[in-house]
Design a protein around this nucleic acid. Structure first.
Lengths: 227, 227
DNA sequence: TACGGATTTTACAAATTCGTTACAGTTTGC
DNA sequence: GCAAACTGTAACGAATTTGTAAAATCCGTA
């Protein structure tokens, strides 16, 4: 999660500040630009981890900024658009943005999408988010949704699989029940945090042949460790 | 679940009581206000963990209450709205509420949303620096919540861990018991300062293999030193 | 609609931590 | 040296957190 920089590009100050407020609260570093040229210059000079880009901008339209960026980079881009915009063109071939949020937007949704896009992009430069994870003798294949221990297939239920993936993506890092709910169940999940415990128990049961263990960090959450 | 207070603001008594009934059943403490001014006063004087706020209120509209609160605080707010209200504005830019429930509402849904919003709010607690600290042969990793001495894992309880981190962030500097209570227990902690002593003793016990020692500065506090 | 597995909630026991207190031991100022 | 102030620490009860089995609910499929 090493602090990632988000470049927010919008000509309205209150939108920039709203985005800043929520993104910084989430631990991101936020830099801003007010027009297209500035955005391009900024992105070139000090590439952020992701760009939030308004479609309508002074000096250079958001479309053009997006195209220029896409001409030579995979920098993740989330477009801010009007509700009646043709979304297919934005996210599709023509512009190639990674996602979009319609204005006026719910800042929590923006944060969720930023997180999702970054997660997708995280392993992308060479590999996909579908990349196979390996931790010690545990191997997790997202595409096949298959987990093996020492090459031996282990059957996991859907939630257990996602939970293991969330944990294994941050080995040796404590993840709180809240974080796990956000990652696995979604940020808008309405349920009890104890649900996590039950799935952890199930997972431990399934992984008892493996060298990977899920440790309880008392009062904080869980983490996965390999000896 | 350290009992959390919910402030329910609505001018209709039966709505307040319905909300109270269900929220109290869930273990929350409920206080109420009947108009906007009262709500603001109440929220300022004794901040609740979350506010359930009707959009239409006497004296001061729910919108204004929400804006005023948002002007200087992150207090979670759930708005009660009519079904045909423009939800984007409420949760989005304009008001910045955390969630909304349409009237007439299903009390169970209200409870679920309260729970979810509180969970999200709890998920973003104290943002300490996540960098690894090292002092002599002691290494402290906040993300893993792991301390090692000469590479050897040392198990610390939550409070001991936080205490060590607070001390190690200011090596050679005397920190008073009050300062430590502020940093580790939070500025609003109400308790004996001697509690610190007990945890210091525990920490010394755990760190006896290390070169780092916690010195008592008589009448002043403690400091951590490395030879 | 009934069935069956997956998921979530619930309930309770067990484990663990925490704050306080009490008292012995230390240090300081005089 | 002596009293007062301060600190170390063991012990204990209370509160919190966790593990887990069992019940309840959800959900897709036959």
């Amino acid at each position: 999660m090493s602090d990632q920089t988000i470049l927010v590009v919008d000509d309205e100050a209150n939108i920039r500040e709203l985005a800043r407020l929520y993104l910084e609260k989430e631990g991101y570093t936020v830099v801003t630009a007010t027009d297209g040229e500035q955005a391009l210059a900024q992105a070139r000079q000090d590439p952020p981890a992701l760009m939030v880009l308004d479609l309508m901008l002074p000096k250079m339209d958001g479309r053009d900024v997006c195209r220029q960026i896409r001409a030579d980079s995979d920098l993740p881009i989330i477009m801010l658009t009007a509700r009646d915009e043709d979304v297919d063109k934005i996210v599709g071939l023509e512009l190639g943005a990674d996602d979009y949020v319609t204005k006026p937007f719910n800042p929590r949704e923006l944060v969720a999408r930023v997180r999702a896009v970054l997660r997708r992009a995280a392993g992308r430069p060479d590999e996909q988010r579908e990349e196979v994870r390996e931790l010690d003798n545990v191997r997790l294949d997202p595409a096949a949704r298959e987990v093996t221990v020492d090459g031996q297939r282990v059957e996991l239920r859907a939630k257990a699989f996602d939970l293991l993936m969330a944990l294994i993506d941050h080995p040796n890092m404590v993840l709180s029940r809240e974080q796990l709910l956000d990652k696995v169940w979604g940020y808008d999940y309405y349920g009890r945090t104890r649900t996590v415990d039950v799935h952890i128990a199930h997972l431990r049961d399934k992984l008892d042949e493996s060298d990977v263990t899920i440790e309880t960090v008392w009062g904080k959450g869980y983490k996965v460790v390999a000896p």
